[in-house]
Structures are given as C-alpha cells and as structure tokens.
Design a protein around this nucleic acid. Structure first.
Length: 504
RNA sequence: GUCCCCAUCGUCCAGAGGCCUAGGACGUGGCCCUUUCAAGGCCAAAACACGGGUUCGAAUCCCGUUGGGGACGCCA
C-alpha cells in the first residue's frame, strides 16, 4: 500500500489538511505501507518555498514522518511538481496525439461570458466546446502565429463514471456535468487534475485519501487514468472540518494552522489525538458495547485505524475538547521537556531573559504549580505571574483582593505574618508551615481565614497554586543571582512587610 | 442554478433490523475533595431532523422533504 499527502505550498498547514495527512499516515503505519509527501507547486503565483518549509516542519512537529518526499528523496522522485514538468509535457503530447485532448484558444473573457450565460440559464457552467473541432493543422498554424492555447481534455459525452469510495460507497457522476477541463495552461504548466493523475500513477500510489472537496475532481481524474492507460487507485474522501457555526474552519474561528496551535502552546500529541477523533473513533475490541478510551498514542491509533470506519459527515472543530486533551498530555509530559517547551512563553513575558542552567532548573521547579490547571503552555507564565509581578498597591485595587483584606481578622494575620517572617529562615515547605502555624497561634485564625490573607499578602492574588508550593518557589526565586537570567523576584519577607504597611 | 456528499445529545463518536429504558467522551449543572482559583472524583440533564414505506419488529433498509456541506477556474 502506498499513500500520499500532497499539499500545495501556498500558506501554512491547515488543521483540516493535517487531519488528512494524519489519516494517510495512520493507514500507512497500520498496514506497513509507504507514506509519501508530494509538493503540488504548479501554481507559481501562490507557491513559495517558505510555505513548503513550514509545512514540512509542521508535519514533522506532529510526528507525521514520510518515507518518500522532496527532502528525503525516494525511488519515484522528484517529489515536487515544479521539477516534474517534463513528465507532464510528455503525457500531454501523448493525449494530444491520441485525440483525447485538443488545443483551446478561447480568451478568458469569452470563457467568462460563457459561464455567466450558463448560470443565467440555470445550466451547470461548463466549457462550451468552442475549440473542440479545430483541426490540428489550423491549431498548429495559430500557435506558430504566436497564439498560446491551453490544452483541454475531451470529456466523453453522456457517460457514467463510477467509483467505489472507501468511505462513502459507490459514487456516480454523469460526464455531461463535466466540461472539457484544462490539462495544460497556456504557459505550459500542468493543471491540477492532470499533474495529480500522472504523479499518483507514476508514484504508484494505491490509495488516494483526501478531502471531500476533491470528490468532484475524481471523475475527471478517472477519465484521465483511462485515457492514459493507467489503473486508477482506490479513493477515499474525508468529510471536511468546520467551525462551530458550520462554516469552513477559517481565521475568524481562531487558530486554523498547525503552527498557530503550536505557537499557542498545544502539544503535538494532543493535536494529533484530537484530530484523529474528528470523524473516527477507535474500534471497540470486544462486543461489550463500551467505548474504548479516546486518549491513545499515535501508534495505537495506527494499529486500530481502518479507513472504512471513518465517518461520513462533516465534523466541527471543538477547541474545548482539544484543550482537555492538551491538559491531559501536559500532565503526562516529562518535566524537562515541558520546561524546554514553555521557556519561550516565559521569555516573551520577560520572566526569563537568558537560557541558563539555573533558569531552566527554576522553571522546572515552578512548572508543576501551573501544569494541570491551564489548557495550554502559553498560559503557564500568567498562572505564575505572582512570582515575578508583585505589586501590593495594584493588588489592593482589585476587588477580590480588597475583599480578603477587609474580612475579619485579615489585617491581624498579615501584620503577624510580616512579624513572623522577619525572623524566619528558609521558607521551604516546612519552614512556611511552621511560620503559618505561629501566625495561627498568635491570631487565633485558622483555615480559610488564616490562609487567604496569607496568600494575598504573599502573592498579591486571591487565587493561585497551593501555598505549600508557591511560597517555597518565591523564596527560592528571591535567592537567585541576577546571572541566572530570571527576572528579579521579591522575597516573602519583603512582600509581607510591604503588604502589612499598606493595610495598617 | 446544476451535480455530488451528508444527517444520533450543544460538540465528537458508538450503534452494521430485535441486545436501545439509545452507550462513551468534551462541554454544561450539582455534589464531594480542598487553606484559595483551577485541577481531580462522583452524579445528573441532554439526541435518533421530518414524512412516507418495507418488516412481526427500524436509530439501523428504501423513497421523499427539509436542513447542512462541497464542486462547477488557465486555484489546488
């Protein structure tokens, strides 16, 4: 089995396309097949090398490695359509010679007028066949005279083209709704349907798995396979991914490209796992009726994947469910990896200025306070901002903080805390607990009435990670030398002092 | 407009004629845990689009309606 993913490098890798790539990858990996990557860059106006590089990077980040492709090569290369032009030219001539295609000299204006006419008359817009009967010699003469025609495929009339779609079953099209489509543009570059067929045939692709938006291209391509004497592959058309309003997932729905999700702090395994579950679910092994867990490593998904099990209807991209998965995978991730992945967000906030061993160690230390309670890596620094941004005046100005301070006995607690901390040593977990205990004895406050004011005085916030973790983190951070590359952290003693002064 | 595809909780799926009093997950609500906010645990509410058939029996099969999506380019 040979499958392929064939993006055009005209922008970033869209999550919908990433899902298509994933399904191809899953199929190949579950069946010991080959997954190849082909770059469809025949649209020279829009294709860029930057996009290509970005797409390759995103696929690799997702873990969807390919066996053959533009950068790794393979036995059926080149894998970039712009480098295969000679192949298309040769097959175009073959089709011309066999009279399966012909030169068309119609101007864009004429074509457009025809289209408008069809639409107005309630007919499906299709090529009128104006140049169908131009004699070869006449065409040749016009070309020599400087005309630059396109090559059109001669679509047979009133024929039924049918194919067994692996996910949808039999699909039938009548050729009467298909106009003679362009094979080669006037500048000699191949048109999509033509290049795809030649490449898929030559690259020996056995299963074409792509988005549903290509389903109406399939009869055209089958016609081409037949004219060229190639055997068509199996086809499977995946339903599309929509936004919550049932319109195609686009910018106004938020992030749409893999790189955006990456930038926002989603883990690749979370995105992959989530994407696989749009339109597919792991088949239940037993007959228990119980649905298997949805959280699956990609190899396990590949093991269970069957293209026939893929759903028929469009799926809506649910950011909430993705967030849930991401939370899960963040908790499961190795601390060192998480620290490395989160560093950029700390840097962006100005919390870390240089990547030093001490900085990494500190980030690793404070990470557990945030992981598990945030949806994305990007949100981690904000959850930990109390470490770096301690401003009692601004804190007091916030309603929820003021409320705590004004509750009964809160001032006493804060004053006592400041006093206790003056003589306290290291505020590790035990040190903090001891100090809190002394404050408890002095003020008679306990539980919420005790810890809430302490939290506010030490973090400037009414909520946040457990103090058992937060206080030692502050204490440790305050001791860091400036060479550590961490933004200066105000120590607990000073925090309590400042706060006590403000509430007196 | 024409052609093609699709239709189970708000969302993603399970369900391949009796196992369905329609199951799971996310989300939502409640409760619990708890020194806070989250997280976590437990419980609950929540769907077979509609109308006709076929059948002893239909969420499951057929037809239609409605609704949604896609395609109709010298884009891919």
């Amino acid at each position: 089995m040979r499958v392929r993913f064939a993006p055009s490098p005209t922008g970033q890798l869209h999550v919908g396309n990433a899902r298509t790539a994933l399904f191809n990858w899953l199929l190949a990996h579950g069946k010991d097949g080959t997954f190849l990557l082909r770059i469809e860059d025949t649209d020279i106006e829009r294709s860029t090398r930057e996009s290509e590089t970005g797409i390759l990077e995103d696929l690799r980040w997702l873990g969807l490695e390919w066996d053959e492709g533009p950068d790794v090569g393979g036995p059926h290369g080149p894998y970039r359509q712009s480098e295969r032009l000679h192949l298309y030219a040769s097959y175009a001539n073959e089709l011309l010679a066999a009279d399966h295609s012909y030169y068309c000299f119609c101007s864009p204006a004429k074509l457009d007028a025809d289209r408008q006419e069809d639409l107005a008359a309630g007919r499906p817009p299709r090529y009128h066949g104006t140049c169908r009967a131009i004699a070869r010699a006449d065409a040749q003469a016009r070309i020599e005279g400087g005309d630059r025609p396109v090559v059109r495929f001669r679509v047979p009339e009133s024929e039924e083209v049918r194919f067994q779609d692996l996910v949808r079953g039999e699909v039938v099209f009548n050729t009467d709704v298909i106009g003679d489509f362009v094979l080669v543009r006037s500048d000699g570059r191949p048109q999509y349907n033509f290049a795809v067929v030649i490449d898929d045939a030559l690259m020996e692709v056995t299963h074409v798995i792509r988005g549903e938006d290509h389903i109406s291209n399939t009869p055209r391509q089958i016609l081409l396979y037949q004219a060229l004497g190639f055997t068509p592959p199996e086809f499977a058309h995946l339903s599309l991914v929509m936004g919550p309003d049932h319109t195609p997932l686009s910018k106004r729905h938020g992030a749409t490209s893999v790189s955006e999700f990456r930038a926002r702090g989603y883990l690749p395994e979370a995105l992959v796992n989530y994407l696989a579950l749009i339109g597919w679910s792991p088949r239940t092994d037993g007959g228990s009726g119980e649905h298997d867990a949805e959280l699956l490593p990609v190899d396990e998904m590949a093991r269970r994947f069957a293209i026939e099990d893929v759903g028929h209807s469009a799926g809506i991209f649910d950011v909430e469910k993705l967030a849930w998965m991401n939370r899960h995978y963040m908790k499961a991730a190795a601390p060192a990896r998480l620290a490395a992945e989160s560093l950029r967000y700390f840097t962006a906030r100005g919390y870390v200025s240089r990547r030093t061993d001490e900085a990494m160690e500190y980030v690793s230390m404070i990470l557990p306070m945030a992981v598990g309670s945030v949806d994305r890596l990007e949100e981690i620094p904000d959850r930990l901002r109390f470490l770096f941004d301690f401003e009692p005046a601004a804190a007091l100005a916030r309603a929820e903080v003021a409320e705590v301070v004004h509750s009964n006995g809160a001032r006493d607690v804060i004053v006592a805390l400041a006093d206790e901390l003056r003589g306290a040593g290291r505020l590790d977990r035990d040190g903090f607990r001891a100090a809190a205990n002394r404050v408890k004895q002095r003020t008679g406050q306990k539980a919420r009435a005790l810890f809430h004011p302490i939290r506010v005085a030490l973090t400037g916030e009414a909520g946040g990670p457990e103090l058992d973790l937060a206080v030692p983190a502050i204490d440790r951070g305050a001791d860091l030398p400036s060479s550590a590359g961490i933004a200066p952290i105000v120590g607990c003693r000073e925090r309590a002092e400042l706060f006590a002064r403000m509430v007196k």
